[in-house]
Each structure stands twice: as C-alpha cells, then as structure tokens.
Amino acid sequence: MKPVPTGQLTRTADGADLVLVRTHRAPVADVWAALTEPERTARWFGSWSGPAGPGRSVELTLTAEEGNPTTTVEVLACTPPVHLRIRAVDEYGTWDLEARLAEADGVTTVELVQHLADPGEATSSGPGWEYYLDRLLAVLREEPMPDFADYHPALVGHYEQGLAALDGR
C-alpha cells in the first residue's frame, strides 16, 4: 500500500495545528464508537480503562506500538458524537489532540487535530497519525491493517514541505 498524506499545517498563536482528515461511509455514531469505546479503540490504536469524561483521566495502552506502552490521558472535552479533546504527556512530549466528527449524506468525516507547540514535531507525528487513521479506516472497513514501514520515512517529506510553507520558504 502506498499511503497518501492528508496532513496540513496551519500557524496558530501557540505554534501550529496539524490537521488530518478521513471519511467513511457510516453513521457518525458508529465512527464515534470506534474512537471512544475501549474495546473498539483497542482494534486500531489502544485500549483504555478508567472513568472517562471531561476533567477525568484514563489509562491508555497503545496496542500497535512495540512494548505496548501505557500513558495517562486527560479528557479535556467530550461532546458525543462530534467532539473529543484529550491531552497526554509521555517521554515523547505533550499530545494535545482533538477529534471533530461530522456526518453528511451517510458519510462521516473525522478531522484529527494535533495542537503543536513545536511545529517541527509534525515530521514525526504526521506520518504516525496518517498510519493510525488508516488503521481506523481498515477496522471500520474490515480491511487488512496497513504497515507502518509504508508511512515512515516515506511521508516525512510531505511534512517537511508543510513546515517550509508554514515558515514561508
């Protein structure tokens, strides 16, 4: 599989937003469940446990990463089935993420936004989010899982170009 990068960078007052979009022909409630129910998130990203809700934290175990690392994830906002914002801090940095969902004519659009204090992080996190969102679609569509080797380093150039454009180069 040759993945097609969708990530775009936009300047913000605090750094940059990395925005990636995927669409799937399904009701928004089904896609929301794949993003938020622990048994479904485990199929493509990671399992989680704990009392979910705004102002609360859950323990996330990444099921597609070597060693299945675990991290605490704080739920900043949650408006089912259209908006989720979370924050996690681990040895790789701070992950400030939003998922925005919308349905039109039976097609649900997922917009994943990573708020980056350092826009340069997009060169490593962009290919990773492309991979994870394609894993989400593979689960929803009952297709084979993509291979991370197809995403990194192959998509790094796309994000380097995005950084150059962001900086006016």
Rank of each mutant, 00 (worst) to 15 (best):
E66A: 15
P80M: 13
P27T: 08
P54K: 05
W44S: 11
G106E: 02
E98H: 02
L101I: 07
L97K: 00
A52I: 14
A26Q: 01
G67W: 06
L97C: 08
V89L: 09
E59M: 11
A29H: 02
V107K: 09
G67C: 06
V75R: 02
L62A: 14
D96Y: 00
G53E: 06
L76D: 13
T79E: 15
T71N: 05
L101N: 02
G53R: 03
V75N: 07
R87Y: 02
T71H: 04
P51Q: 14
A29F: 00
T41M: 09
A64P: 00
T79A: 12
E37N: 10
P51G: 14
E66K: 15
G50S: 09
F45N: 04
V110A: 05
R100D: 08
R43D: 06
A26I: 08
V75C: 14
L97R: 04
A64G: 10
A26P: 00
G55V: 14
G106W: 00
P38H: 12
F45M: 10
L97Q: 13
V110H: 03
E91V: 06
T41N: 10
T36H: 10
A88F: 00
L35D: 04
L76Y: 03
W44R: 10
W48R: 11
A64V: 09
L76G: 08
E37D: 15
E91N: 03
P38D: 13
A104D: 12
S57Y: 03
G53C: 04
P27S: 06
E37I: 08
T61I: 04
A102F: 01
P81R: 11
V28G: 00
W95Y: 08
R85E: 15
P69Y: 07
T41S: 07
W44E: 05
W32S: 08
P81N: 12
R87F: 03
L76M: 13
R56A: 15
W48A: 12
G53T: 10
A29R: 08
E74I: 13
D90M: 04
E66P: 13
T36C: 15
A64Q: 13
A88C: 00
I86A: 02
L101T: 08
R40P: 07
W95I: 10
T23Q: 10
Y92H: 12
P69R: 09
G106I: 05
D90Q: 04
A104L: 07
L62I: 12
E65R: 13
G53Y: 01
V58P: 10
T108A: 01
A52E: 13
L35A: 12
R40A: 14
V89S: 08
R100F: 02
L84T: 10
W95N: 08
T71P: 02
G67K: 07
A42S: 13
L35P: 03
E103Q: 06
R25L: 02
R40V: 11
G67S: 11
T70S: 05
F45D: 00
T79N: 09
R87K: 14
P27H: 06
